[in-house]
Design a protein around this nucleic acid. Sequence first.
RNA 1: UGUCCGAUAGCUCAGAUGGUUAGAGCGCCGCUCUUACAAAGCGGAGGUCGACGGUUCGAAUCCGUCUCGGACUACCA
Length: 918
Amino acid sequence: MDKSYQPKDIEQRLYERWEEKGYFAPQGDGEPYCIVIPPPNVTGTLHMGHAFQDTIMDALTRYHRMQGHRTLWQPGMDHAGIATQMVVERLLNAEGTSRRDLGREKFVERVWQWKDESGGQIARQTRRLGASVDWSRDRFTMDEGLSEAVRHVFVQLYEEDLIYRGKRLVNWDPVLHTALSDLEVLADDEAGNLWHFRYPLASGEGQLVVATTRPETMLGDSAVAVHPEDERYKDLVGQEIVLPIVGRRIPIIADDYVDPEFGTGCVKITPAHDFNDYDIGKRHDLPIYNILTDDAALNDAVPEAYRGLDRFVARDKIVEEFKELGLLEKIEDYTVKIPRGDRSHAVVEPYLTDQWYVKIEPLAKPAIEAVESGRIRFVPENWSKTYFDWMYNIQDWCISRQLWWGHRIPAWYDEAGNVYVGHDESAVREKHGLGPGIALRQDEDVLDTWFSSALWPFSTLGWPEKTDAVKEFYPGNVLVTGFDIIFFWVARMIMFGMKFMDDVPFREVYIHGLIRDQDGQKMSKSKGNVLDPLDLIDGIDLESLVAKRTAGMMQTHLAPGIEKATRKHFPDGIDAYGCDALRMTFGALATTGRDIRFDLGRIEGYKNFCNKLWNAARYVLMNTAALDDGDLEFSAADRWIRARLDATTRDMHRHFGSYRLDLAVQAIYEFTWHEFCDWYLELSKPVLQSDESSAALQRGTRRTLIDVLEALLRLLHPLIPFVTEEIWEQVAERAGIDADTIMLRPYPEASDDAADDDAVADIEWVKQFVLGIRQIRGEMDISPGKPLTVVLQQASESDRRRAGDHAHLLQRVGRVEAISVLADGDQPPPAATALLGDMRLLVPMKGLIDVDAERARLEKQMDKVRAELAKATGKLANENFVNNAPPAVVEQERERVLEFEKTLTQLEEQLRKLDELA
RNA sequence: UGUCCGAUAGCUCAGAUGGUUAGAGCGCCGCUCUUACAAAGCGGAGGUCGACGGUUCGAAUCCGUCUCGGACUACCA
């Protein structure tokens, strides 16, 4: 083995072998365990969030696979309608052509081409992350089987009246020319104005002042509303306004919606271009004046001078004209929420169009119950509240999109505009008796991407076919995802799962946090703070990183700032940490539902951890070459480390069971480094490197070294698959295990044997002994290599026994040359002191210890003890404590006081000794 | 608008059901290249647990109020 761990050499080689051998496919006949991957968008590349999520899922998958479950991690990708179409359109633009130039068919072909390239990139990244997905079952939301599932669902919902077509206001993206669902619209505060317009009464007597953030929509006004109880305007209700510029007479109406406290208490009503106004319009039967085109320019319904103007140009012109007419009361600065498309970032318009909708309430009900009843559990639990909030107020889902890339809606129209829904055209013709003479044309629209995503937990398994996979792997066990898509995806999977499978799609939803940069900022391309997980695995130099972050930016003016920040945060680029280190870091950061600041310091530490493990293995392998059969005798250290391994194994099961990968990482890190390496390996040396130990004892230690390391590797494997596999192959051979991979070995189970208390106590005593000596060395500046003589004062029977039994350990690990026991009544020599229970460890000074330094040490220790003593006696002096606290707690406190007092006496005595000397 | 989350060492974070001296990693300060590992070993310093009240014998932990962050959600034109 190399002297240090070199991940680069082994990761890809191992992954290829695992894949070739088919280890990722479900194996055996254990209980099924299934996770479906949240399918990444084909367009993109995997970012830190994906890598984090994949790490969690892979750890769970490997853990369950090792437990003998028939484990499936279902992979796949999403066609991501809008996102993908935008990317390809941008490519076309760069080539000087466009979607429209190509035409629908050619364009879609082109997207498929792009999908193959981009999807390949994602698959490569997924492999580099070590994800043990079953590639043989890889699916894509637009492949034939999934498209079949989509059509099936659409047709059934339509036939059950749960899908309908309707003309209403939708969120219209005037750049992409498509409708959007509510969820795809993001409203953020932007600086704007509030314009106050005077609207003259038709009676000619007076005017009303209305305030608006969108002056141009006044061209579509069909009323002015006031609150019914508003005394100022009560008498005007029923009268009319003459709408300036347009000249239309519109009524003054009364509606509760109006807040009399806001502005003037008068609201202009534009039913075609505002959701609230639309509702009011319906309540009052107002005419609807659509004044916009698909591009959000003004259409022919407005006065000639405004026709064809962009909405924002028209806005200025309207304001100008009001000013000229003397009808502009005032302009205020005002912060407005501007709705923008989440992909195009264009300002979205409420717009009246024909769209397809899913009637959501009947679907939402069982989905709410599924969570209420506990059939689906959110982890952490509080996310269920978010889920309920949305589900209780859920709106019908607009599922049609005016795009070319996606599942075409399976609806056909005849020339009269009658709509027929069916699997395909021939099915429609057959069902409705439409002969070949009748021309049908298919709906031009495609479905919202999330419509097919909602079917993912069962469509990927072959549904609507009744496949074995469906029977076996539905419902899945856990969904691992981010909170940002609880509404988009999680809720919809639950609704469709309940509807079509009559069962929940998964039993638990593990919601993880968002990966942020070192300053807590969300990672995004435009901020230039994204990290490519592969760059953390393979490393990248500064110049390449800068180039990568500033390349292909939409807003090029941000590049210099990004470059500066990048040079500041990564002055030396990024080291190659290897996949395992990255995964271990993600695991350690996977705390319950809180966002994660990704810190390079952490990954560095886990790279070191991998190296530590590597070197521990080197030591074990070096020392176990000569394994032979024969009697085994296990030392106290052997028995101790096995007990510790058992305890750690229990911890690992508990933490995996509760999705606390952070605690799992912490527990296994602690065991590996601070118990196995720091102590056990050191304690094994005196046994193996001494002629005095018996062959049986040496055998026992060798056996333990191999056994514990082998189990440790299995405990670690779900988290750090590569380095564990690489080491394991050699260790397994030594251990006499005949198997090809650690992946399919059983996950360790804690033994039922009671912990070996004697051995544990002995080794704890040895540790305390050594630590005491080391402390004296450290603080007295005695070289670690210098052998010391130790005198035991007030040694009990068991202290003496232990000192005798483990003298060889103390000698080697503590560099204690000689131990002598001070007889009762004998004068102790001037010495530096450490305490071990009631016993004192004395390191005689013989010129090597500084009296003042030792005095300072003692004073410091005594201060600490005195503080604690004061606290404890204070407690006991409190009658309430003594009377009310559980007896065990009180008793414990009494014992502590005795301990402290005894310790204090000892230290005082020692201090006196020093004073005598001085 | 409503809901939720967070505030613990210089930094990034752990701290079930309230109970010994509040922990880890990194960083920092010393000392060591001791034959698995300097990507290491050993020792050490560093925290009135956001603020104020309350419950309790006892609060980082439970309950209120507040401050400062963050997220989601709904909005008054």
